[in-house]
């Protein structure tokens, strides 16, 4: 086992031990793992199945049902662009096109330098300040194409 795999397994076991007795533990466990690692690795599915006494297929079924959980590592930052109605009324479709062109990726893809993963999101509750986006846990409102570029530039420079 590589060091990396050992670390991964340690994190997964710790979260599993901490949370497996919760009523309805699976989502809290998956959240814990994704918060710690950025995604839910294959190794986790097997371990959770063992820990909760469920089949791997069941765990996989849950992971794949929810848009938020991912099974591959994201870029350093995840950019969630709101596609929902209120944001559309204020130019979200144009912003999406602009962002895709600027980052050179489509939705669910990561830029070549590994800096940004682009994801669609359906409302951030920021509809009074549409169009909206979230980068990691930070919400942005009234995002013009210029503002988008500025935020991306700042995050790139901070790297």
């Amino acid at each position: 086992m590589s060091d990396h795999e050992q670390d991964l397994n340690a994190v997964i076991s710790r979260i599993l031990e901490e949370r497996k007795a919760y009523p309805g533990a699976l989502l809290p466990i998956l959240h814990g793992i994704q918060d710690a690692l950025g995604y839910v690795p294959r190794e986790a599915i097997a371990q959770i199945a063992l820990g909760l006494n469920l089949s791997r297929a069941e765990i996989h079924g849950v992971v794949s049902f929810y848009h938020y959980f991912r099974t591959s590592p994201p870029g350093r930052h995840t950019v969630y662009l709101c596609r929902a109605e209120s944001c559309q009324s204020m130019g979200a479709n144009q912003l999406v096109e602009h962002a895709k062109a600027k980052l050179g990726v489509d939705f669910h893809e990561t830029t070549r330098d590994g800096a940004f993963t682009l994801e669609p999101i359906y409302c951030l509750g920021n509809c009074a300040c549409s169009p909206a986006m979230m980068i990691d846990d930070e919400v942005y409102g009234r995002v013009t194409p210029e503002r988008f570029e500025e935020v991306i530039r700042i995050l790139k420079e901070a790297a």
């Binding site: 009523p23 309805g24 533990a25 699976l26 989502l27 809290p28 998956l30 959240h31 079924g61 849950v62 049902f65 929810y66 848009h67 938020y68 959980f69 999101i121 359906y122």
Partner: peptide, 25 residues
């Protein structure tokens, strides 16, 4: 507090309960 996971259907009450139980919504 329990956190959802980006599924609109989990706003429907029975789907939400399934999700709280740790299942697909």
């Amino acid at each position: 507090v329990r956190k959802g996971a980006g599924a609109y259907i989990c706003g429907e009450e029975t789907s939400l309960l399934e999700s709280l139980e740790g299942k697909r919504g």
